[in-house]
Design a protein around this nucleic acid. Structure first.
Lengths: 189, 189
DNA sequence: CAAAAGCATTGACCTGGGGCAACGTTTTCA
DNA sequence: TGAAAACGTTGCCCCAGGTCAATGCTTTTG
């Protein structure tokens, strides 16, 4: 059950088998259905999730009812509503699994206890933050000045499975395009 | 010379006077001119900067020669080309002071030594990362679905001094608008 | 397993905001 | 301090990509 998570941990730091077991023991399995919502807008996020199977999506709905996808985590990735989780404040976003999924979840309290007591785990958290920061920057700034076609080429290049895995509608809302435009342009390669 | 930095540190954690002095002793003063470039595209960023006076800008120039401003740090703020600094790799951006400025700079090596040896400083770094992450998210996702006028209202609301302090051109490149559009819309309040 | 709801695709039409250029003002620097 | 360069503003034109709607396909659910 914790195989994938253990691999994740081993790939990032030197940790003894015992520490790894100890860390893993704080993660519990949660099975979810397609389109199941884990966190509603306005709720405070209490868990960090590791995706064992399936896919986690972070999104918002603006005042006009328009959905915007912010982030997707697939197998082997971590995800949560980070601003809410960090600041312990109501989220301005939703968290859902877009497929039937298996998540390993850890509570906020346990998470920060591990961060503060196991230096290696603190390091992993720092890496997650650093990487998250960099990835977000790259996506955003990489997109700056891109037209619709360039954005599509960009995802195909950087996340080859993305368009296959995610619905046209969600992909469009991630790229900041209308579903029609994405559909039209995909038809032209 | 280190007054502002000390205030910054004191506001964020409990640190003894000695630790604060010790931390500050690693920051050296650097005076720069208007439009002086501190880091060129392709160079590896070796310093973290604290702005004592003036303003630091992070920007890129794309293949068509178009400038995009990514981030501004004013008095009392930290700034650097974070992806390059973190990954110790060539930057895909420039760093400059857009006014004559006084910066307190710390070398990458010293910075990470402090992070690793003074837990409180590690905590401050974590806070900077968390905050940077959240701020970036808010700016980006806050802008999603905003039209030009809404973006302008957003900065006026959240960074009232910004439009006054920064040239029309730079503000436009930060907001993802053309200078003409920004100019036109400012005229209509 | 059939009705209903949701999604993808595509055509017709429309518009926000970008590009370009002209002109006045401000900044730069020899 | 004066010529040159850079910037801000504004008018005119145009197009990438949005909205809306029709059609057919796929998924959901009672």
């Amino acid at each position: 059950m914790h195989t994938l998570l253990k691999t994740f941990l081993k790939n990032r730091t030197q940790l003894t088998e015992d520490s790894i077991e100890f860390i893993c023991s704080h993660f519990t399995l949660r099975k979810t259905r397609r389109n199941q919502i884990l966190l509603h807008y306005g709720e405070t996020c209490q868990h960090y999730y590791f995706v064992n199977k399936g896919c986690l999506r972070l999104y918002t709905i603006n005042k006009d009812g328009l959905e915007t996808s912010r982030f997707f985590a697939f197998e082997g990735g971590f995800g949560t509503a980070l601003p809410s989780f960090i600041e312990h404040s109501p989220a301005f976003e939703y968290l859902q699994t877009i497929e039937a999924s298996e998540l390993l979840q850890i509570s906020r309290a346990d998470f920060y206890t591990l961060v503060d007591t196991i230096p290696q785990f603190g390091l992993i958290y720092r890496q997650i933050l650093e990487l998250g920061f960099i990835t977000a920057q790259k996506r955003i700034y990489g997109f700056q000045g891109f037209d619709a076609l360039e954005k599509i080429r960009w995802v195909i290049q950087h996340q080859p499975d993305f368009l296959r895995r995610v619905s046209n509608k969600m992909a469009a809302s991630y790229l900041g395009l209308s579903p029609s435009t994405l559909s039209r342009l995909k038809a032209k390669l």
